[in-house]
Amino acid sequence: MYGGGNTFEGIKNDGLAQENPEKLAAFEARIARGEKIEPTDWMPQLYRKQLIRMIEQHAHSEIIGALPEGTWITRAPGFKRKMALMAKVQDEVGHAQLLYSAAETLGKSREQMIDDLITGKSKYSNIFNYPTFTWADCCFISWLVDAGAIVNQLANAKGSYGPYCRALDRICAEESFHLKYGHHCVIYLATGTAKQRAMFQEALNRWWPPLMHFFGPSDKISAHTEILMRWKVKMSSNDDIRNQFLDMYVPKIWELGFTIPDANLKKNEETGKWEYTEPDWEEFKRVINGDGPCNKERLEVRRIAEERGRWVREALKSPESAYVMPLA
């Protein structure tokens, strides 16, 4: 599970003026009653557009996120770890399949989504534009990036769009072993030799800033999302999800005796909120726009994979094939 905080386009509520007011009221009433929206139901264009964007970003993140971890399959320490990592990476790619299908029910073809990923038009979680130098980096992703994604996606599974919620329920169920496996790997590094401990501490130092970015821009600077929360497209603000993650996982990291590289990180017992050094949002923007250490590599690997597979898909194509939008 790799989906983190999503980036939404600036939202203009005045676009709703073109929608049928009666249908819009019925749509909002259904969501307020806690009912799911299904593909054949009427929905505002803005809802459709933002959902496609969110689900597509999530699907791309699963595919791209498999690359930094997949790199370590051949070098994972021991047969058991190799088996587990291989199964985990297979799960993540399977999750992309589920998510692309959910996005397709909203009317965007899988062909277009893959093209948009490779041209850079669609985004994916920024964190996967950083390299996994050591096995400890891989363990960091398995434990803490997955943990962050789980916090986010457990919230989104209670959203309003039926096909996305069903995909997330399945994804979350499959995730149970990922988190335990990741924590297990880190416990072994933490309780191992001084060199192993140092290796994880270095990984933590490298990955903490991207992990803070992972939950998306601060509420102070992110696009206005009130309407997306009302429509249950977005279930919590980026800062709330970040705070929830810190609440659950900072104590576990400290318990293992590691130092989080932020001298200002502490919980304000009065507010119940974590205080931390504001992440570098300029770096976040720069990397999301293509200037990260691995952006080019990630997209080039996908482009080559698509090019190399083209002849296979062409050979398999049957003249009787027909595309029909998935049903649910």
Partner: peptide, 18 residues
């Protein structure tokens, strides 16, 4: 293979039927 950064747009049914 191909040109880095250049994408050949996919044709309909490149990803096959459902």
């Amino acid at each position: 293979i191909g040109t880095p950064g250049m994408v050949v747009p996919k044709v309909p049914l490149d990803q096959l039927g459902t």
